[in-house]
Design a binder for these strands. Structure first.
Length: 633
DNA sequence: GTAGGGTTAG
């Protein structure tokens, strides 16, 4: 329908002249506020508002506040000032102000303005409560949230509003108070997909994916967000296979996926560390054109790093235009894990000098581990000291663990030990573990015993600590102590994890090898290939390192046990199943022993192959007789 | 208008 200008004019001519002018100015201002591209535009519109004497209009100012909050303009001083110029703010304006604080903080201001609003006798809206719950959730302030909840019940009506209930559930979820969330959810007489999704997330956050799954199945409709909540839930709860299964189901059901979904998928692939899956997800991303997205890109950097594809990690990093601290940290950590310490540090320097990106605690974990792997003690100390002085980041026990590792590996065991004793706060398992690890490298029984005792208190069931201590005794030739630790382990019902390796074949099949394992269908070929390889290595000067066998048996038996180490079997399998010149990739569940490390170095030169091993902590790139870890592992 | 996202050590 077309309204003629004359008809419109007839309608507005009911208004007095003054009103007409204001009404026209108002509608122009509404349009201007709606269309404002940035803060400068909004400020200009607001200035016009002031000139026209309309800066006291609740309606216009609430519109202004909403737009400013959308743009992330801090509440103080400007939006708050605009609010204070309104003599009689109505409930909508109060709510816009409260919502602004709920989105941008400081969160307690939302609550105190609610109090002021009540004092001004403005009647709260459902919108007001949703803003308050949002702010309590963001502040993770359960007490205030529960108080506001009580208010809604007291005032009546609000607690039955679907919108209010949904934000209420979400508030309890964000405060990690599952029982209250569930109580509200169960009391709802109508639920929409948002209610169901909030509750699914509640269980996923608490680690109870079983209940999350049950709710997901019960939900009458499932949209992309609900499906994504399941994908991310499994990914966040260390169930990458299930995350991928849900994603495949989602695709089968024809539900679209977006960047958030894919981030969950990428994170699952990172945990699997499988190259086949990584390439598959990368194809999907390319089709969707998501590589520039900073969250996707940061997850990608991490995924490629964990899959051993450090070059691809770098490419993913470069593809992100607006890199943030996650992108940089993921790249720095990946470089450190691959032994490219100098590049990690170069990137860090570049970040602090040439960008606005501020490092955080995780960035420093990456920087300190890089220093540690490269043996850069002085540089590490410098960075550690700069954390608080230059960046205002208080070092956590995790950072102390990195520095203890740094000093310990470099042989400064005494200093490392003193640092543990003098650090503020309690040393945790990571700190003592780093010290114990250093004691293994430098065979220091005295400090090892102190560290081990602390660890047995802190982590009584962690098998690795007993194994480490027993290995240190073995290296020192203290066999009676070795058997004592063994007894200790047996008494606790703990059994040593068998060493095992995975090799991902070209068809994506995973081949598994255990120490001394004969179960692979091609065992005979593998053994023959290994013997042949070891013969060639011996000609190149290889001598088995018997100290790697931490059992008191004959040399003959030691030689045989060494040969059966799972990474050697995996290497032989790799040689059998790949072409000349191809890289061999092996994943190992434990640390690589010195003998296997030496074998890999030599083999890389004798066979002219690149060999990449991911152990439980980092990557080793063997090439031309050397390893990227430079002996630090 | 309310629900789903990425980097951490021995």
């Amino acid at each position: 329908m077309v309204i003629s200008p004359a008809a419109g004019a007839a309608e507005v001519s009911f208004f007095p002249a003054l009103h007409l002018r204001y009404a026209a100015a108002e509608s122009r201002l509404i349009a201007a506020l709606d269309a404002s591209a940035g803060v400068a535009h909004l400020r200009a519109s607001h200035a016009r508002l002031v000139r026209l004497g309309l800066s006291g209009s609740s309606f216009l100012v609430s519109k202004l506040l909403r737009r400013l909050a959308e743009l992330g303009v801090p509440m103080d001083p400007y939006p708050r000032l605009a609010f204070s110029q309104v003599p009689h703010p109505n409930a909508f304006l109060w709510t816009a102000l409260i919502r602004g604080y709920a989105v941008l903080g400081p969160f307690q201001e939302a609550l105190s303005h609610y109090t002021l609003m009540r004092r001004a006798e403005a009647p709260p809206l459902s919108f007001t409560f949703s803003a308050l719950f949002k702010s309590c959730g963001a502040a993770r302030c359960l007490d205030s949230g529960a108080q506001v909840h009580a208010q809604t019940i007291l005032l009546g009506g609000f607690d039955a509003d679907l919108f209010v209930q949904n934000t209420l559930v979400d508030m309890y979820v964000k405060c990690d108070h599952l029982p209250s969330a569930r109580r509200v959810f169960d009391g709802m007489c109508a639920r929409d997909i948002i209610s169901w999704t909030s509750m699914i997330v509640a269980y996923s956050r608490s680690g109870d994916m079983g209940s999350a799954e049950m709710l997901f199945e019960r939900a009458p409709v499932k949209d992309m967000v609900a499906w994504t909540a399941m994908v991310s839930g499994f990914a966040q709860n260390a169930r990458p296979r299930d995350a991928l299964t849900v994603f495949r189901r989602m695709q089968e059901e024809g539900i679209e996926a977006d960047d958030v979904t894919l981030v969950g998928v990428i994170s699952a692939c990172a945990q699997l560390g499988a190259i086949g899956e990584a390439r598959w997800v990368c194809d999907i991303l390319q089709k969707m054109g998501l590589q520039k997205n900073v969250v996707v890109g940061s997850a990608l950097v991490d995924m490629f790093g964990k899959c051993g594809l450090i070059g691809e990690a770098r490419q993913a990093f470069e593809a992100v235009e607006e890199k943030n601290v996650y992108t940089y940290s993921a790249m720095i950590v990946a470089l450190a894990a691959h032994g490219q310490a100098k590049d990690a540090i170069k990137l860090f320097e570049q970040m602090v000098e040439k960008t606005q990106v501020k490092p955080n605690r995780v960035t420093f974990i990456g920087v300190l581990t890089a220093c540690s792997h490269a043996g850069m003690v002085e540089k590490g100390r410098l960075y550690f000291n700069s954390m608080e002085d230059k960046y205002g980041i208080f070092p956590s026990p995790d950072h102390y663990a990195c520095v203890v590792d740094l000093l310990g590996r470099a042989g400064l065991l005494r200093e490392a030990f003193e640092l543990v004793n003098s650090m503020p706060g309690e040393a945790h398992g990571g700190v003592w573990g780093a010290l114990l690890g250093a004691c293994r490298i430098h065979v220091n029984v005295e400090i090892a015993e102190v560290a081990a005792n602390a660890l047995f208190e802190l982590e009584p069931d962690s098998i690795g600590n007993y194994v480490l201590l027993s290995n240190i005794y073995a290296h020192a030739g203290m066999w009676d102590k070795v058997s004592h630790v063994r007894k200790l382990m047996r008494g606790k019902g703990l059994r040593k994890n068998p060493g095992c390796c995975f090799v991902e074949a070209k068809d994506g099949a995973i081949h598994e090898f255990f120490a001394g394992d004969m179960s692979h269908p091609r065992t005979r070929e593998i053994k023959a290939a290994l013997e042949e390889l070891l013969d060639r290595l011996r000609l190149a000067g290889y001598v088995p390192n018997m100290s790697c066998v931490v059992r008191d048996v004959s040399d003959e038996e030691k030689r045989s046990l060494l040969k059966g180490h799972s990474e050697k079997l995996a290497l032989a399998f790799g040689l059998l199943t790949t072409e000349a010149g191809e890289t061999i990739r092996i994943i190992k569940n434990l640390r690589v022993c010195d003998d296997c490390h030496a074998v890999m170095c030599l083999a890389s030169s004798v066979t002219e192959r690149k060999i990449i091993i991911r152990d439980n902590l980092r990557f080793h790139h063997f090439q031309a007789g050397g390893c990227s870890c430079g002996g630090f592992w």
